[in-house]
Amino acid sequence: MSVLLEVKDLKKYFPIKKGSFLSKNVINVKAVEDVSFNLNEGETLGIVGESGCGKSTTGRCILRLIEPTSGTVKFDGKDLNKLSKNQMREVRRDMQFIFQDPFASLNPRLTVGETIIEPMNNFNVGEKKERENRVKELLNIVGLSPYHLTRYPHEFSGGQRQRIGIARALSANPRLVVCDEPVSALDVSIQAQTINLLMDLQKQYNLTMIFIAHDLSVVKHISDRVAVMYLGSIVEISDYKDLYDKPTHPYTQALLSAIPKPDPKADKNRIILKGDIPSPTNPPSGCKFHTRCMYATEICKTDVPEMRKVNDTHSVACHHAKI
């Protein structure tokens, strides 16, 4: 398998300007800090973490929907951050984004047909007739009917809208799809439907996917590998099986213990984290997790833990991880 996406030391700081224009002082919100990972063709990477930990920002930075502060993103060997605006537009054909909120991600003034055909028109895919056929085919794939083509988004339910969004993303045959919490705005019954649809499509088109979510059970279902993020950094990245069976980072352990278990008699030794997630404007020194970690010692406050390998596919950033 070849590496399709290579992310290295990705950083995104959002500056907050305070004070008058005479005494400017800029505070940075460190949304994403030193995120690195590789993604093979046809693989699905799940990214999980609390809200505000930079999952979505990472996804958007990879597709350059927002400009990263520094770091490199290599897609199929091309360094995306070095491309001009026009070159970038060409590359976008191969990489698409599925949005979280199906109510905000569709233009209310365009019909479903116009929305789905737009990427093909922009990227000059095929002849006019082929595009129209492809739209119908896509509607069919995502479980909508041809008569929906001339309708407007406000006539659809949330789940249907999300499927329209998926059809739009797939319209120009992308290779990489970043899904930003695609099911968190949907009802539980629709969630399963949408996830199954995504998994089918992933197999059918051999898509490479980044699946961002805060729900570990959803991620478990769809991912080959899982990355756990805390305060803008990846703390653990692993094969999904390894991660769920042998979580190494204390934060991962806490997250996993929070998954509700269907069996009421199962032993409930939940790890409850103390305190809130620290502010990303002023993250803690050393290991960012040390303020809430039950194993924290002196070294955690001073030294930033390196990513260490547990095995070939499993890495963790913790001083106390048993390797």
């Binding site: 929907l65 537009r89 984004f97 991600s105 922009n122």
Partner: peptide
């Protein structure tokens, strides 16, 4: 978000 979507579809 649909404006962001418009960027991403080129």
């Amino acid at each position: 978000e649909y404006v962001e979507a418009a960027i991403s579809i080129g």
